[in-house]
Simulated assay, not measured.
Amino acid sequence: MAWWNHWTSFAKRLVHVIAKPVKRDRGRGGMVVHPYRGYGSHEDVFVMGRVFRQAALGRAIPRRGMLRDTADVARRIFRRGLADAKVEIRLGDNQLCIKTDRDGYFDAHLPITTSLPIDVSWHRADIHVEAQGQQSVRTDVEVYIPPPETDLVIISDIDDTVMFTGVAEKLKMLYRLFVKKPHRRTAFPGVAALYQALHRGETNKAERPILYVSRGPWAIYEMLEAFFQLNRIPVGPILFLREWGISLRHPWPRRAEAHKRDLIDRMLALFEDMPCILIGDSGQHDPEVYTEIVKAYPGRIKAIYIRRVDSDPKREKGIERLRNELADTNCELVLAADSVLMAEHAHANGDISARGLDAVRRDVEEHRREEAQENASL
């Protein structure tokens, strides 16, 4: 019966995480605001989020437990975005008012006209939302602004770059997250140490921004936050590529590579002349998109790290052609089977410390030992 207890525990914890976003209303229903972690510079800040209308809980539903979580999951499934809600955002003495779109989203670009403290990186933005027929809601969200001395920004894909994709791999990941103790192998070996090293830089004291993009929908935001925290991967604004809502006007989500390019253009414009490292995988269009970006922004991209996720000779030849296209630039495209090769290149370029490189090597070696022990026990 041990397996039954494990899977029961898995189901309960997973349902609780899925239900979490609707619990802010304490069962009362009505308007709920879900902001996503923001990012910016000392000139401009971006804050995104969504405003929902959701049903109230019945009086017969208990405050806690599996029945409450199941009811909240149902409320999450049937809640709808609230259009034309008035969203007021304040960051220090800076203020902006916008309205939500027809799906309830807001995407605020707030110019910073009154200076913010430069001795902290995480700032709090206050949000006040009003809508006709709804009780107003106040909340807040964290906004990351790198310090003025920041020398590098990292932009990383998530799927098949940080974490495994595929139904079978995601089930394993979820099982390890919610049943076993936090386990680094829910992410690729060495990823946590590599991203920590890139965040801290050669001095081990930097606070470089790491911005993440994904092909997934906003609906899995909370699950990815749990994944990042449990795997000790530096947190940052998690920017998803597409809203997956289907409508007659938009029967399919926008192509992931097109939206990814737009987001990266936006980030490079935000951080002006700051150098950048791009990280992706060989399974999708990351090498092609990143090569186009190097050509569009001469001198801005220091390196492209591509995780090899298959052994297709044709794909490797295609990536080799892209590497040759960049031969006359100051950017090298590195196709790597694991995080160690990326870390070695970053260290050679002066982008991470020797301590950071050693941490990546230890992490990968520890994974190999554990994998060998698991295989020997089968």
Rank of each mutant, 00 (worst) to 15 (best):
N5F: 11
H6L: 10
F10H: 10
H16I: 00
H16Y: 06
V17D: 10
V22D: 07
G27P: 07
H34W: 07
P35K: 01
F46D: 01
R53K: 15
A56V: 02
D72Q: 11
A85S: 12
R90E: 14
L91Y: 09
G92I: 10
L96W: 07
T100W: 03
D103T: 06
F106D: 02
A131Q: 05
Q134L: 11
D140H: 15
D140N: 15
V162T: 10
E169M: 08
K170V: 15
R176N: 10
A187N: 07
A192D: 11
A193D: 02
L198K: 02
K205R: 14
E207A: 13
I210Y: 11
Y212T: 05
V213T: 15
V213C: 06
R215L: 06
I220L: 15
Y221Q: 11
E222N: 13
Q229D: 15
I238C: 01
F240G: 00
W244R: 08
I246W: 03
R249P: 00
P253C: 02
R254N: 10
R255M: 07
A256Y: 09
E257F: 11
L270G: 05
E272S: 14
C276I: 03
G283Y: 04
V294W: 01
A296F: 00
A303W: 02
R307W: 07
V309N: 04
I319N: 07
N324H: 13
L333S: 08
V340M: 07
S353V: 08
A354I: 08
R355Y: 01
G356M: 06
A376M: 07
S377L: 13
